[in-house]
């Protein structure tokens, strides 16, 4: 399903091409084979623009979905998503400093990602410092701190956008806030993929502990899973993966919130199963959302967050109405 989606993602776009040609060019890129002079233009589109973009979409979707599961267990709140800890709004401050004021120009094409990542990390540390208490990280304090600081960061971002002189830059900043995979290049893929994969593997190993944690702190402790230590670890993993994902794609909403719920409705609450299915679901969803964002109003691109919502909301509501779900209390 994911492989098929990836091929479709490469095949569909503003410039039409035959499927045979697309497959041949993808294979040429993967195997390092040669191609004729007539294919060079198409090859550039397929290999340099679309393919990395689609792969990045899959990586980002998988990462957001996995981290969404982690955050919902971390703050014990079904409405939490990866951005509830203030990470994305923190990243937006850094990203907009680059987009609007040309900060960090010395880093060239990496300035945006780097700045977003660093400010995401700074925001995370700030949230952690404020939310911690002698009794450890309490879920409620985390949510409240994250939400409060997110409003603060958003205010800073808004002031920056209004203060910017160039209207076009403000539009670019807006686009970044809504999330986009338009800046995808091959060099961005390995780092993001490694972080997402490592984060996901860590979560998979802790699946049983996450089950225990969601039964409450006392139960968790009695089952040999110290809740405060697990929460600290979860916080670090969440921050690293979210920070990386946001750095390469901006704040793409909905995936991290809804995919975990969607998957729970399909496979049940056990984290072992949820963590096996959620990243794949997130990847497929985001690849298709990205395809639609490019094709629907071609050559204009829609923000991908708009499409994830347009695809996800009906699917989610349909499933919720059809089957029992913990959120709705049956």
């Amino acid at each position: 399903m994911l492989a098929l989606s990836l091929v479709c993602g490469v095949g569909l776009g503003a410039t039409g091409m035959g499927w045979g040609q697309v497959l041949r060019l993808m294979w040429a890129g993967l195997s390092g084979g040669s191609l004729g002079a007539g294919d060079v233009g198409a090859y550039t589109i397929v290999w340099e623009i679309r393919f990395p973009r689609v792969v990045l979409a899959a990586v980002v979707g998988a990462g957001l979905a996995a981290v969404g599961v982690a955050v919902q267990a971390l703050v014990r709140n079904a409405l939490a998503d990866p951005f509830v800890l203030g990470i994305s709004s923190g990243a937006a401050v850094g990203a907009n400093a680059v987009i609007l004021f040309g900060a960090l120009a010395g880093l060239g094409v990496w300035a945006l990602s780097f700045s977003a990542f660093v400010s995401a990390l700074a925001a995370t540390l700030l949230v952690y410092a404020v939310a911690r208490s002698p009794l450890g990280l309490s879920p409620l304090r985390l949510v409240l701190t994250g939400t409060a600081l997110a409003y603060g960061f958003q205010a800073v971002t808004t002031v920056m956008v209004f203060g910017a002189e160039r209207g076009e830059a403000a539009r670019a900043a807006m686009m970044w806030l809504l999330g986009s995979l338009g800046g995808a290049t091959w060099p961005k893929v390995p780092l993001a993929a490694t972080t997402v994969l490592a984060g996901w593997l860590w979560l998979k190993l802790r699946a049983g502990a996450l089950d225990a944690l969601s039964m409450g702190d006392e139960t968790s402790a009695a089952l040999g899973v110290p809740p405060h230590r697990l929460r600290r670890e979860l916080f670090v993993v969440t921050a690293a993966v979210t920070g990386t994902v946001v750095a390469v794609s901006g704040a793409i909403g909905f995936v991290g919130l809804m995919v975990p719920h969607l998957v729970r409705m399909l496979v049940g609450a056990s984290h072992t199963r949820v963590l096996a299915v959620a990243p794949l679901t997130g990847a497929v969803l985001l690849v298709w959302a990205d395809i639609l964002s490019r094709v629907l109003l071609a050559p204009t691109e829609l923000p991908v967050g708009v499409v994830t919502a347009a695809l996800g909301v009906p699917a989610f509501l349909l499933l919720m109405r059809r089957g029992g779900h913990a959120l709705t209390g049956r």
Binding site: Q72, M215, G216, E218, A269
Partner: peptide, 18 residues
């Protein structure tokens, strides 16, 4: 313990298997 929270809808078997 006295609390009996559950954030997600585990089945009884899943809860016991923990």
């Amino acid at each position: 313990p006295q609390e009996s929270a559950a954030d997600f809808d585990f089945t009884v078997t899943e809860v016991v298997a923990m």
